[in-house]
Design a protein around this nucleic acid. Structure first.
Ligand SMILES: [Mn+2]
Ligand SMILES: [Mn+2]
Ligand SMILES: [Mn+2]
Ligand SMILES: [Mn+2]
Lengths: 153, 153
DNA sequence: ATAAATATGTAGCCTTAGATACAATTGAAT
DNA sequence: ATTCAATTGTATCTAAGGCTACATATTTAT
């Protein structure tokens, strides 16, 4: 089958296509968000566990995140290299100042997303479920809109 | 520093912790969503390109998604193994029946998410940006709520 | 004090998903 | 018919993020 010409006649065009550069930028941002998802989920979990239990242990994180302790171990090592946590062998994991700051932001955003979904009538279970993924893709502008609509419904 | 007891007194508890099983389930779903993001973005892009240009070539997908043609190649091979596309060496990529079905769902969801964000006053640019990530984490219940609110504001 | 259970660490495997560098094929221009 | 540019394919690297199996350390129970 012969390759179609790169610039087909208007008759072939069914729908207008956004310039690929813009589209590519959107996908790139989405992928970048995905790359920092892990760090955000971990620092948020570490903050929660530290608040509730006084410290965050590898096993607690593993149970909480639904992964094995091996995965937690490697990820925590990466978070330490990135400067978000401090930990020593066989010790609990504590957030650095940067980690606490990030955790605060994530916790606030997580709660806003959940509250917003709840305000739409979504059940608590599904709101928590969806928020766990959505939270990482909500820009400041969208977050602000959520907060604004929560104040004045 | 000694390890804290696993069951601290209530005095230590600062905030209530959801049972770890529920939390783990949420994170698991979020990770599963992430794993199918790629397939969804690809079939949606293939459908768009096929509609606009008559066929989807590797270079077009690469430009659209903001990755190299190598990445596209490998991913398309995986999509073919998964039964979403049909393609032969040096030929264009076409969706299978399953691929078309998935693309339809994704397109509809993508548009709903964008329209919903727009209805909150989010700018078109940011709405498109956020939707590209959010769309993959919107459950049927939440999608239905978005659609309902779009009809009767 | 010793033994058992729990927690943590390490080695090595897999998949996805990005990249560069180079090879081969194709389509179009000369 | 030949050449050339664009497209597609392949080899190889890197990193994240999941896993099992096994080793070591620590805490708890006897
Ligand atoms: Mn999350
Ligand atoms: Mn969260
Ligand atoms: Mn997307
Ligand atoms: Mn999309």
């Amino acid at each position: 089958m012969p390759r179609l010409a790169r610039k087909p006649s208007v008759a072939v065009r069914a729908a207008p296509l956004r310039p690929p550069a813009q589209s590519a930028e959107n996908f790139r941002r989405s992928r970048r968000d995905r790359a920092v998802e892990t760090a955000q989920d971990y620092v948020e979990a570490i903050a929660d566990l530290t608040g509730a239990l006084g410290e965050a242990r590898v096993v607690d994180l593993a149970r909480r995140l639904g992964v094995t302790h091996v995965t937690v171990n490697r990820t925590v090592a990466r978070l330490q290299r990135a400067g978000y946590v401090n930990t020593q062998p066989y010790q609990a994991i504590f957030l650095s100042a940067a980690g606490r700051k990030l955790a605060e932001e994530c916790k606030r955003r997580h709660e806003t997303v959940v509250a917003f979904l709840r305000s739409l009538g979504i059940s608590e279970k599904v709101a928590e479920l969806d928020a766990e993924g959505i939270e990482h893709h909500v820009s400041p502008e969208t977050l602000a809109a959520f907060e604004r609509l929560l104040k004045k419904p």
